[in-house]
Amino acid sequence: MIAYVLRRLVYGFATVLGVLLFLFFLFFLYASPEDIARRAIGEKAPPAAIEQWIANHGYDRPLVWNPEDPTDSLLVEHFRRMLTFDFGRSDADDVPIRQRLAEGAGPSLALMVPLFLFELLVSVTLGLFVATFRETYIDRAGVAICVFAMSVSILLYIIGGQYLVGRVLNWFPVSGWDASPSVIARFLALPVIVGVLASFGEQVRFYRTVFVEETARDYVRTARAKGCGDARVMWRHVLPNAMIPILTQVVVAIPFLFTGSILLESFFGIPGLGSMTVDAIQGNDFATLRVMVFIGSLLFILAQIATDVLYTLADPRVRLE
């Protein structure tokens, strides 16, 4: 088990290096520092200004190989910054990216953790409910509603939610941010509701499929034969057996708890990492974008290893080797 985890960590590290290489290719080789400078300060900027920008942002080094000092090239610098979590400065306004990350993580977590928990609770419960009534009109109606909900773009949920709740009903503030504990919930309520609405269709349908598949198994018949009721069968037998697909689904979401929701945050003015990403897009801030992608995949890789370990808890048959 420990050997397995170690091996996974080594492979994960290799994957991280792969991601960094990919980012280097994308942001240094494909889009050269010159391109980036031009996008940052304008297509028609004088060459001197562009050179100045490149120098200011430390992009004025050899790309891959510096014959004088092999440790001093953009490639080495890129890897060094990422792997030491230094991250450098924003291309847009020179603020250290680490500082930005530290500021944005709080609001992102404040939005994403409740959203994630609600989503999980709602979709697992509804999934179990619909699966309990499989092959009946409740099930068919449930699936139809899910497909319907899935077909609406998340933007419409956001626009509709803002319009309806904020303007017509005047229930919550439409957008804004105040991190003091007494009012934070008011700013989070609408984005959380919208987030749950936007995702429940797909999620409920997924869990329904998992549960229905699981309900067809023989041990479920055994449980019924010994006198378990529907609810008990679903919660005590089907749900624990469905833990593996559920865990897989849950863990995939974990990186987003930190990187935040790009759409929800920027729509509702929550100053988290999602908003930061949007600012980076609008400000052609490639440095920040690189860091976001890097952190996202780092978390994803760690979460995947965690999933494998959790599998052994969820299912005694799973042996890691």
Binding site: R217, D218, Y219, R221, T222, A223, A225, K226, G227, H237, P240, N241, M243, A314, D315, P316, R317
Partner: peptide, 18 residues
Amino acid sequence: GNDVSMIFQEPMTSLNPV
């Protein structure tokens, strides 16, 4: 389970694996 119990053909799959 009280008045009547049932056992099945497949002991491999008829028990809850977890």
